[in-house]
Amino acid sequence: MSLSQKFISFMSGFFMILFGVLVLVWQRYNISNSNDSNAYVAILWILETALMISGIQQLVYYFTMARNMVGGIYIFYKGILLLDAGLFAVALGEVPEQYGMLYLIATMAFSGITAIIHAIEAKRMQSGRWIHQMFYGSVEFLSAIVCLIFLNKGEIFEIVYSVGLFHAGAHRILAAFRPSSIVYIK
């Protein structure tokens, strides 16, 4: 990692954690004041923006790389569709909390299953790492089930989402400090 990449990694991790804290604070504030959830609106705004950005990214990817490949035109269609979906989501006045929950459930279930597969393989190879992987995978998968049970409870969505932000943020900050260069020895 270059210095600028380390800086970006650190700052993005820092802002993720900060946003996670804000989501929790807003959520507590809303509960105590019986208001509509600002936290949910903020998360939704993030997701919608991410959708739009990913549409733009796909278009940039098409013009810089995929344009030259066999069947690359599909990337162009994909970019247009994502951008359109993002703009549509922003234009919607209100999106039911269940949609956000379903997105989170799918992400967590997939991540949990892959971690469990890794753990099973690591155990077969007598690696001590399997316990950590199994724990992580099980927690992810169980969280997905909890979210599914409390599909109509927005608070659960906000808490789980902010915990996910803490995890991803911490990972980015650690990555910024981790030595990653390969030493060349003649």
């Binding site: 270059s2 030595p179 990653s180 260069s181 390969i182 030493v183 060349y184 020895i185």
Partner: peptide, 28 residues
């Protein structure tokens, strides 16, 4: 090309990088 990451020349810059490579330096 930075796709495989950064490489630090041990002779010029000393040991700066992933600790596992100390083993290689020691062996050399």
């Amino acid at each position: 090309n930075r796709l495989a990451g950064y490489s630090v020349d041990f002779e010029k810059h000393g040991f700066r990088g992933i600790a596992d490579f100390r083993r290689l330096a020691r062996a050399k």
